[in-house]
């Protein structure tokens, strides 16, 4: 049977083979999650590293996005006589869409690609084989711990991103208009309810799960030396992006269905 290069599939048949393989991989890692010993220390270590690695980039990106959207939106809203709505519009768009999606995209670049490269490098240098022959459940140590860590870290980063984005928006809004921080926040959170926040955090959980699963999958599939490591990182970014937007679309539909 011809071996498929998972990093650059070329046909519909290969795409479905990839989906099948990923499903089996996800199921496999799910089964390993319930086996003892639980790698609590490794999960916490990964959560710290993942948060630490992406915090700076998330801060910069979402701060600027909050700032820029406000700078562009406020004059238009002023013309319409609805500038007072800007804080709330920004807050809703940040919590519902911009925050979770942008955080997930940044984490894909910083964390997902690192997972793919790290596991890929370990696969190529026989470190995963070394774990296997010494009686260590490497799926649990490498895959399950990373999946759990990123699944729970991403919603936390999303909340952080929301706060940073709102700060950017406040600064931009305050450049030309006098508004106190408490009043801006009251306006921002006016009309916001659990249907704005909960779907966003649930979506972030799925984003985190998807990014870590994709990174681990392509890391495990890596071969061909250093090239394989690069391909694993690239494939992680490409497929994670695809899946983030697909989940985002699905989440929007489900939220819309549930709230209307």
């Amino acid at each position: 049977m011809k071996e498929i290069n998972w990093a650059s599939i070329g046909s519909v048949k290969e795409f479905f083979a990839l989906v099948g393989e990923m499903t089996v991989f996800a199921f496999h890692s799910f089964l390993h999650a319930f086996r003892k010993p639980f790698e609590g220390a490794e999960i916490l270590r990964q959560m710290f590293l993942m948060g630490y690695k992406s915090l700076f980039l998330i801060s910069i990106t979402i701060f600027i996005i909050g700032l820029v959207i406000t700078i562009q939106l406020a004059p238009k809203m002023e013309d319409l006589g609805a500038v007072a709505l800007v804080p709330n519009m920004l807050a809703v768009s940040l919590i519902r869409e911009v925050g979770p999606v942008l955080t997930a995209l940044v984490c894909t670049g910083k964390v997902g690609s690192a997972i793919g490269a790290e596991i890929g490098s370990m696969k190529i240098t026989e470190q995963i084989d070394a774990m296997e022959v010494s009686g260590v459940d490497h799926y649990k140590y490498l895959v399950v711990s990373r999946i759990i860590a990123l699944t729970f870290t991403l919603p936390l980063l999303t909340i952080y991103g929301f706060a940073v984005g709102l700060t950017g928006s406040f600064l931009a809004y305050n450049l030309e208009r006098e508004i106190s921080a408490p009043l801006f926040m009251i306006s921002a959170f006016a009309n916001m309810n659990s249907y704005d926040v909960i779907p966003s955090l649930v979506k972030s959980l799925f984003f985190g799960y998807t990014i870590a699963l994709t990174g681990s999958f392509f890391g495990y599939k890596a071969n061909k030396g250093a090239i394989g490591v690069g391909e694993a990182a690239n494939a992680t970014i490409f497929y994670s992006f695809l899946m983030i937007f697909f989940i985002d679309m699905l989440a929007a539909e489900i939220t819309h269905y549930l709230t209307h």
């Binding site: 086996r35 790290e118 370990m122 240098t125 026989e126 470190q127 084989d129 070394a130 774990m131 296997e132 022959v133 010494s134 009686g135 260590v136 459940d137």
Partner: peptide
């Protein structure tokens, strides 16, 4: 599964490259 994981503890394997965990 776990039976294989536990059984492998009775066997040592020295890899040509050493395969030390570099992290």
């Amino acid at each position: 599964g776990e039976t294989l994981i536990n059984f492998r503890r009775k066997i040592g394997y020295l890899f040509q490259s050493g395969a030390l965990y570099d992290f």
